[in-house]
Design a binder for these strands. Structure first.
Length: 217
DNA sequence: TTCCTGCGGT
DNA sequence: ACCGCCGGAA
């Protein structure tokens, strides 16, 4: 369907209605402080959410606060993060928590500009913290979201769709003023469970009747 | 083989 | 704009 305001509203309502019965539950979706959200987001990039759960729980048990995290040795962190791959993340997370602790004390900011100045924090992670911990209506655009919006509204999704201006504008228009966190959990869950990269489950998709991609078969 | 709530260096 | 990172699951 075309990305008109009315269609975007239909999309949001259908998505949230589906989410009511299909929400995934993750530990970082509870008690959403900036610190807990940031650690989760750093672990989640290019990594499946289910895979992150045990590592996140272990990390939080070892480092309940930002101050604890800033004092933990890099070797300990490296061992904890090993199952997630991307081993440079151990150094990165260590730099992040130490820098954050020294600059902001006991808790992190939720402004995107301040967050982005921290090591390892870019477009996506800063927006995620601002949204989930700060309740700000900013757009989260990962490969999942870009693919899903592209399919539904008929924009090309090849290559680096995330960075394209039209995809970004569409994503921003879709974010609701109220409860942006729930909306983004819904769209992430929908991308992971229904609108998958390969073999999307169009036959059980509540949006298929409106969707440009499903219509094409 | 591809893909996973990306980022930083070039 | 492009590329490497990386273990694990599908």
């Amino acid at each position: 369907m075309k990305p008109t305001n009315d269609n975007i509203d239909v999309f949001r309502r259908t998505l949230l209605s589906w989410w009511q019965g299909n929400a995934r539950d993750f530990p970082w979706r509870h008690n959403r402080t900036p610190y807990r959200t940031a650690i989760a987001e750093l672990m989640l990039r290019r990594t499946r959410a289910e895979q992150v759960v045990p590592v996140y729980n272990a990390y939080m048990e070892a480092n309940p606060t930002l101050e604890d995290a800033s004092q933990s040795a890099i070797d300990t962190t490296e061992a904890l993060l090993y199952p997630l791959g991307l081993r440079w993340r151990a150094q990165n997370m260590t730099d992040f928590v130490r820098d954050a602790r020294s600059r902001y004390g006991s808790d992190l900011p939720t402004s995107i500009d301040e967050l982005k100045s921290l090591p390892g924090v870019g477009e996506y992670v800063s927006a995620a913290i601002a949204c989930f911990a700060g309740d700000q209506s900013v757009a989260l655009i990962d490969t999942n979201v870009a693919r899903l919006l592209g399919r539904v509204f008929g924009l090309p999704v090849t290559g680096e769709a995330r960075r394209r201006a039209d995809v970004k504008r569409l994503a921003e228009r879709c974010v609701p003023d109220l409860n942006p966190g729930e909306y983004h959990y819904a769209i992430l869950d929908f991308g992971a469970l229904i609108c998958t990269a390969r073999r999307p489950k169009c036959t059980s998709c509540p949006i298929a009747q409106y969707c440009n991609f499903a219509a094409k078969g």
